[in-house]
């Protein structure tokens, strides 16, 4: 079953790409020019996240080198191992609702620490992929139209975040353990 599902994962991208290109043929879209135009943004995007990545990765590296992260991981260790959660993923669970680029930085740090094919990396990757930064989105979207009274928006978002975290731990343990 899991093998089959893993194959589904692998097939999704080729299927999407085939669908997009087939539709482009049908609509006679100048696919090459449009592709090149869109691909330019890859550079802008990468350059735009550099300062954030530096800030967060330096922060986490300092916290790790000074032993602060080690202390926190030791505290939470027994609780986390009980649920088969790698202790290295502690930090990413905290950053995911706060900042997208911070979460990317922490993911990169986990890859550095545990290797790219480790379970900790896979869990962290799913956590990163399934997180949209609640506080950032709220301030941007509501800020843009001048809403001051957020009512239950943040609470609902955070409850969904917590559910997402628990689900990520559960689904990953089924897929990758």
């Amino acid at each position: 079953m899991i093998n089959f599902l893993n194959n589904v994962s692998i097939l999704i991208l080729p299927l999407i790409i085939t669908a997009i290109l087939s539709y482009a043929i049908y609509k006679k879209t100048p696919a090459y020019e449009v592709f090149v135009d869109g691909a330019k943004e890859g550079f802008t995007l990468a350059v735009k996240i550099i300062p954030y990545l530096i800030a967060i990765m330096v922060c986490t590296a300092m916290l790790r080198a000074s032993g602060v992260i080690g202390i926190i991981e030791n505290w939470l260790g027994p609780f986390l191992t009980h649920f088969k959660i790698p202790t290295q993923t502690t930090l990413i669970m905290l950053t995911r609702s706060l900042s997208g680029s911070a979460t990317l930085g922490v993911l990169a740090d986990i890859i550095n620490q545990t290797g790219v094919d480790s379970y900790a990396t896979k869990l962290a990757a799913v956590i990163t992929g399934s997180s949209e930064t609640t506080f950032y989105v709220a301030s941007v979207y509501f800020g843009a139209v001048g809403i001051k009274k957020f009512r239950h928006a943040l609470l609902a978002g955070i409850l969904a975040d917590i559910t997402g975290l628990i689900l990520a731990v559960f689904v990953c343990s089924k897929f990758f353990l």
């Binding site: 290109l21 539709y23 482009a24 609509k27 592709f35 890859g42 550079f43």
Partner: peptide, 15 residues
Amino acid sequence: GFWLGIVNIAKKSGL
């Protein structure tokens, strides 16, 4: 860049 290029095709073709 590759992915944004592909998705740009989806955007511009109206998909």
